[in-house]
Design a protein around this nucleic acid. Structure first.
Lengths: 263, 263
DNA sequence: AACATTTGTTTTATATACAAAACTTAAGGA
DNA sequence: TCCTTAAGTTTTGTATATAAAACAAATGTT
């Protein structure tokens, strides 16, 4: 019911702050506005504390309580932090024209993503003009072990770093191609690094295909990853190696080159 | 140097939470990563408190400290709240196809916005295909008194509500068309409400034009506003009344109609 | 309609978050 | 090299944030 609330996890923890952010997260994840009592239950804190936190968050615009002041949902203020973060990621602005060109060449959607811990975080989403509705939007996260994007991103870490990162984790098997354990994951990562790109057919989603390649900075560190991805029907599979792969790899290389110049 | 930190503004305030969010805001607004000492100075809190807050925020992923652990910037976690908010705004999904159609008809950029207090908040931004680089992106805010979008949005408030909202405020005059005081603003709002739309030529920005119309819910409340906007050169001014205005007004009406059906 | 439950709000005694001060590094200038 | 200043970290006494308990209002049930 309630994950342990990291009480004095370290002696420098500010509990009021941690709890307030947990409240925002819980409300963000809930699929409907929550009452004070529900928030308290979900976090395992007293109603009075939940009351004080929602009071503070509402005052600051991070929560808004519409229907008769009883139900709390996210307030518009939360947008500011997110977009401020996005606007700071120079790689988005830098990569966008290249990704658009790639989309136009291939007529499938292209994406830009980075690693955040054990997750892939999508930073941009250039949708196909023939517009199959994409199931990915900016800000989405996916488990890093389960996607080709992730295998490329992990290529930057040593084997021991990867083992430490996933220590004790159970991999949820999403498709027949999902690595079943750390060893299989490490093989995937190594293969991806050696090849310099990943082609996947139905790895992440049945009937969907992806081609993925890394964006490197001046010292060869993997700072981001790009892909093109679409239902199989959108690809001409006979042109996979001759056309799609070079298109993605070259685009990644161009972005990498310009990254070196500026950043 | 430091805005007064709302000490026990009310007895239910959670100061640790309020300060933590202020830290995030200050870092979001700064144009470079900040040190603990700088954060403390900006907020008027002690270094030790700034240390504990950044410690907590970093642990939770809301801050990241790259360069040698001394400089703090926003962490990727801040994205989750923002996008969760956006995904919850059904009006965005609902309005998008209509705005795209409007963009295609007129070949200028179109936008969707709502009111947040004294600000206009942009929720979507459909850029022109002939793509003059738009100076507006999702998440942007503008002072509500200074823009036609704002005059429409304020149409939902009574005159006394408007006076209360801006009580004691000084209006910064951005263009010759900016209302100089509350009375002028109220005239603009009234005119906008009576006309049902606003045409502006260079009101907000020199050489730029906008046409704006309200989105209403089933009981006639203004819940959002749409516009098309571009440099003057993108418009054919002889078709202003015959083509552009009806296009925007009709689109707003269609969105309003569908809003009633679903929400 | 009466009772029982649940939820939001207020009070309050006490556990603890906070700022000041002490300590530790690091950087810069003389 | 030594001295000074500034910044990050740790400790600590005290002001205060907090959870429990009390209260009030609303909602649900028999």
């Amino acid at each position: 019911m309630s994950e342990s609330l990291n009480k004095n996890h370290d002696r420098y923890f500010v509990p009021g702050l941690a709890r307030g952010l947990r409240v925002l997260e819980v409300i963000a994840q809930a699929d409907q506005p929550l009452t004070i009592a529900e928030i308290g239950k979900k976090l395992g804190i007293s109603r009075s504390s939940a009351f004080r936190i929602t009071y503070t968050l509402s005052y600051l615009g991070y929560l808004s309580s519409d229907k008769g002041d009883k139900l709390y949902e996210l307030g518009p203020r939360v947008l500011d932090l997110g977009f401020s973060y996005l606007n700071r990621q120079d790689i988005i602005k830098l990569a966008k024209p290249y990704l658009e060109k790639l989309r136009d060449q291939t007529d499938v959607s292209s994406h830009l993503a980075i690693r955040d811990g054990k997750e892939v975080l999508y930073l941009d989403n250039i949708i196909s003009r023939s517009s199959f509705v994409s199931n990915i939007t900016t800000g989405d996260r996916r488990p890093i072990y389960a996607t080709p994007l992730g295998w490329i991103l992990l290529g930057d870490l040593s084997e021991t770093s990867i083992r430490k990162l996933f220590e004790g984790d159970q991999f949820k098997i999403l498709t027949p191609h999902t690595p079943k354990n750390i060893d299989e994951l490490i093989n995937r990562v190594r293969a991806a690094r050696e090849q310099g790109y990943v082609i996947s057919r139905g790895f992440v989603q049945r009937g969907g295909s992806t081609i993925t390649a890394p964006v490197l900075n001046e010292i060869g560190k993997v700072v981001a990853v790009i892909d093109i991805s679409a239902p199989d029907s959108a690809f001409s599979f006979d042109k996979m190696d001759s056309f799609y792969v070079p298109a993605v790899v070259d685009t990644a290389r161009e972005i990498s080159k310009n990254l070196g110049h500026r950043g």
